[in-house]
């Protein structure tokens, strides 16, 4: 059960229950939809980017605790950062969840991302943790018209 506790840390369970920045963003100018055909999880990421800065970010969708918590933590980290910083965070996250479970974790550098280190022990769940981040990168690349609430 130790590895399970490592995966389902309190922080992850909290974010799952009460996700931050959950909902639509009416004045978003970037958005993308992510889909995991393996489990049917769907997520939408909405961004308001101005002068290379992520001014606001929100997400909607359904998914497991890992994917919801990952999306929630991601929004708190990316909000207020530059696009370049967001991309660097993605890379750091990606490296973390795809490295060997035995690899040393630099807690200081990873900061809030470190809670996802437990995912490395569960290969079938890496996609759950990564879905939101991949959707974020797709949204940053795909500039779209503002999402209308009409």
């Amino acid at each position: 059960m130790d590895e399970l506790r490592e995966l389902y840390q309190e922080i992850i369970l909290d974010h799952n229950k009460n996700p931050k920045n959950f909902g639509e963003l009416p004045d978003a100018n970037h958005s993308s939809e992510g889909y995991n055909p393996l489990c049917g999880d769907r997520i939408k990421v909405f961004l308001k980017v101005k002068d290379g800065l992520v001014e606001d970010i929100k997400f909607t969708g359904s998914g497991c605790a890992i994917s919801r918590a990952s999306a929630s933590v991601m929004t708190t980290l990316v909000k207020g950062k530059t696009v370049q910083e967001a991309e660097e965070l993605f890379k750091r996250f990606h490296d973390l969840v795809t490295q060997s479970p035995q690899a040393e974790v630099n807690l200081e550098e990873l900061d809030k991302l470190a809670v996802f280190a437990g995912v490395r022990e569960f290969p079938s769940r890496i996609k759950c943790a990564s879905l939101a981040w991949h959707t974020l990168i797709a949204a940053l690349k795909e500039k779209q018209e503002p999402i209308s609430t009409e």
Binding site: S62, C64, F122
Partner: peptide
């Protein structure tokens, strides 16, 4: 509880 979380727990 999402089915995926159930699956992982039960697996262990």
């Amino acid at each position: 509880v999402h089915p995926h979380d159930i699956g992982t727990f039960l697996d262990r």
